[in-house]
């Protein structure tokens, strides 16, 4: 174990381990090992994948716990109250966009703390009245926030956007433009017609309280086709996103495929190559062992 580490350090200008945020050899090898370990799951569940999975869960939990403690407890409680207490006399503190006396700011925050304690009291008194009060406030606030903002953005403005004219005199004639087809009058009319017809048909598909007659059934059928096209486009975008992640990982692994990160400064022993071979070998041997056991 020590010899390869020494070989790494002696052959490379990159430090073996550093705390200053710069890339080091240990980090490079770890990135390659964990990436390849996760990919090894595509073949079969195995100990390498388990190591990567548990490392991720552990590191992620620690990071998120610290972030939520810092930004969700420390800052809104300690920093806020400390700030309010240190303000010079007569100076107002910002609360909800308004300047208020620091004493009121502390009282408001203390009520929030009290409500948090009420919520936690559920662990001791599962059927007590205390947790219901903060829950009621949370449900009320959240419902109000969602209702007002989302009604405007997802209903009112969407309905307005759906009412498009089918012609636009500002658009170009078909013969004027052969490059940007979407800038032409013909395309504009076609696109908006498809949108209006598609919208009506898709909505008709969700009319469940009337019998599917020939007309409603036909319109609903077109609606299903519109929905299927939508799902198809979503699938296409999902493939695009998943490939983007794969290509980025391959790109990252490729970045470590050089002499600086390689054992003994030999490119053939760079982390992605060496670890791929190593993981494949261990998997092959372990699976062979399992197969022979199950055969016997």
């Amino acid at each position: 174990m020590i010899r390869p580490m020494l070989a790494l350090q002696e052959a490379s200008p990159i430090p073996f381990f550093t705390m200053d945020g710069e890339m080091d050899l240990l980090g490079g090898w770890l990135i390659c090992f964990l990436t390849l370990s996760v990919f090894s799951f595509l073949y079969k569940d195995n100990p390498f994948y388990k190591i990567a999975e548990h490392t991720f869960v552990g590191a992620g939990t620690a990071f998120f716990a610290l972030q939520y403690y810092s930004e969700g407890i420390l800052e809104p409680l300690y920093v806020h109250i400390n700030h309010a207490m240190q303000l010079p006399a007569g100076e107002l503190m910002q609360l909800g966009g308004y300047g208020v006396d620091p004493t009121y700011a502390i009282i408001f925050r203390s009520v929030a703390v009290l409500f948090s304690i009420f919520l936690l009291s559920r662990m001791v008194f599962p059927n007590g009245w205390a947790p219901r009060w903060p829950l009621a406030v949370m449900v009320g606030v959240y419902a109000a926030l969602k209702l007002t903002g989302e009604t405007q953005s997802k209903l009112v403005l969407q309905v307005a956007s759906a009412m498009q004219p089918l012609t636009n005199p500002e658009k170009l004639a078909w013969s004027d433009n052969w490059v940007a087809v979407e800038e032409t009058q013909v395309f504009y009319t076609f696109a908006n017609t498809v949108m209006v017809v598609g919208l009506i048909c898709a909505l008709a598909h969700f009319i469940f309280t009337y019998k599917r007659t020939k007309i409603l059934g036909g319109v609903s059928r077109v609606g299903i086709i519109v929905l299927m096209i939508t799902f198809g486009s979503m699938f296409g975008f999902t493939v695009l996103g998943r490939y983007a992640l794969l290509i980025e990982r391959v790109d990252t692994l490729g970045g470590f495929n050089n002499q600086d990160y390689a054992l003994f400064g030999t490119s053939a022993l760079s982390p992605p190559i060496l670890l791929t071979v190593l993981i494949a070998l261990v998997l092959a041997v372990s699976l062979r062992g399992k197969n022979s056991t199950s055969t016997s």
Partner: peptide, 24 residues
């Protein structure tokens, strides 16, 4: 200003007043 927990509520707070949503 960094991370603000609270999802939609945090966004509403930031929209209402950035200087109130963050202390420091």
């Amino acid at each position: 200003l960094g991370f603000k927990p609270g999802d939609d509520v945090a966004m509403g707070q930031i929209g209402q007043s950035v200087t109130s949503a963050y202390i420091q």
